[in-house]
Amino acid sequence: MFNPNATDIDGPILFSPENEKELDTLLQRYPYKRAALLPVLYMAQAQFGWLSPGVMAYVAQRLELPEGKVLQVASFYTMFDKKPAGRHKIEVCTSVPCCMMGGFAVVRHISEQLGIGVGETTADGRVTLLEAECLAGCGYAPLLQVNGEFHENLTPERIDALLATLR
């Protein structure tokens, strides 16, 4: 049962007025509510920071879906955070061909600089480090994405300069 006073995130679990409007727009795009689940989960993640059990229950209620269906979908897709992530999410491509172009060396370098392993978040909540499968930039390897922006043809110096900008 959805509990608007759930304590798994700070504050009440209610969409902001802007997101209520966005929800109306999204629902008009599809012939039925369920089809809006992915965009609504993105919206919820952007507002609440992560998809806590309380947030997923709220989404289920708003889209008139069983909570289990929302959990099932949220856990199938890697871009939905089922635990809190850092303010900046670094995703390093280690797929073929990046793996042979130094992708793993980039992961090691960042890991050493930040003192965290893959899948971990710095203690101050600043950065989460992830390995990604092919990011569609294979010609410019090695590369990473941070907060959706591409950084290509990486060198240790460029990585350090980038890390310094992430506050």
Partner: peptide, 27 residues
């Protein structure tokens, strides 16, 4: 025309998985 974002699942490049995903399900 509507843009619908996937959420990180390679299999959704397969056309019927993509359709499932577009309907709000697992791909």
């Amino acid at each position: 025309i509507y843009v619908h974002r996937g959420a990180g699942a390679y299999i959704c490049g397969e056309e019927t998985a993509l359709i499932e995903s577009l309907e709000g399900k697992t791909g």
